[in-house]
Write a protein that binds this DNA or RNA. Structure first.
Ligand SMILES: [Mn+2]
Ligand SMILES: [Mn+2]
Ligand SMILES: [Zn+2]
Ligand SMILES: [Zn+2]
Lengths: 142, 142
DNA sequence: TATGTAAATGCAAATTATTTGCAATAAGGA
DNA sequence: TCCTTATTGCAAATAATTTGCATTTACATA
């Protein structure tokens, strides 16, 4: 669903923030932009990063992720399994369906649900700043 | 919204599970059933428990909560702040709106949203086992 | 009511994901 | 190329929750 976003966009987010483009950051960003594996957690990213440069450290992965998140370049999701998972904050808003058997994360969007949420909040006298909607399920048997 | 549920119902949940009704459990359950403070976290419960019996321990609070959760007597929610919060699993299903300024937790239910979720999952070939819907917002200015 | 046994407890230590202090390194403007 | 300062890697700190183990307690039975 999300519109394409490549390494360069994430690198620019850092540059705009006046941050230095270091080798570790370049590698981490490249991994985040990879459409191959989506919603990786910090350890996933670390393991892949080490393959490109064995002296990268886990704290640097966390620090880079936090920095990118603070600049709105990536989003962090905390699903029920504990760890945080990350994804480039490009395309339009979407929510997630998690396959309880495989751990696969499927994205979806529902204008209707979004609208209903706003409506409910308004009725309660609130304005939504952000929300979290996660469906946990299993593939329907044929 | 939830239908009233008192200490006895929770105590019975333990009895049914063949568990012993100990003093710490009695106290913890009484705190959970208290309509006064809803969605307390483990530390909230521990602090209140200690007032009734100073030798209660935090591990016992956690162990009791886990046991009650496993037997479906209480529900655990992990909101964005990290800690888990608990509530008796009595009344009908509901979701939560969290006041970002005060931390207050407001309950709501939406048949429409629940139905839309099912629909979305079905279209994706899934059956929902459980879900998490949390709205984070601020009171609308008058 | 007294008693034996397994379940439950309290304490201290372990766990897990993430963060932080600090000395060494490296990015990038001058 | 050089200088300054941000960034790094490492080790140690956090914070919430869990676990090992010796001691206590609930409660079924006598
Ligand atoms: Mn996503
Ligand atoms: Mn609730
Ligand atoms: Zn949404
Ligand atoms: Zn719901």
């Amino acid at each position: 669903m999300p519109t394409p976003l490549d390494s360069d966009d994430l690198l620019n987010a850092l540059r705009d923030a006046g941050a230095r483009i270091t080798k570790p950051r370049r590698i981490i960003i490249q991994i985040l932009a990879d459409k191959g594996d989506e919603h990786p957690d910090a350890m996933d990213i670390f393991r892949r990063a080490v393959r490109q440069d064995s002296r990268i450290s886990l704290p640097t992965v966390y620090r880079t992720l936090k920095m990118l998140e603070e600049h709105g370049a990536i989003q962090r999701h905390a699903f029920v399994d504990g760890r945080s998972r990350y994804e480039p904050a490009d395309g339009p808003h979407h929510d997630h369906l998690i396959d309880m058997d495989t751990g696969a994360v499927i994205e979806f969007q529902s204008e209707k649900i979004e609208r209903l949420q706003e409506e409910i909040a308004r009725e309660l006298g609130y304005e939504i700043v952000h929300h979290r909607l996660e469906l946990y399920g299993r593939k329907t048997k044929v």
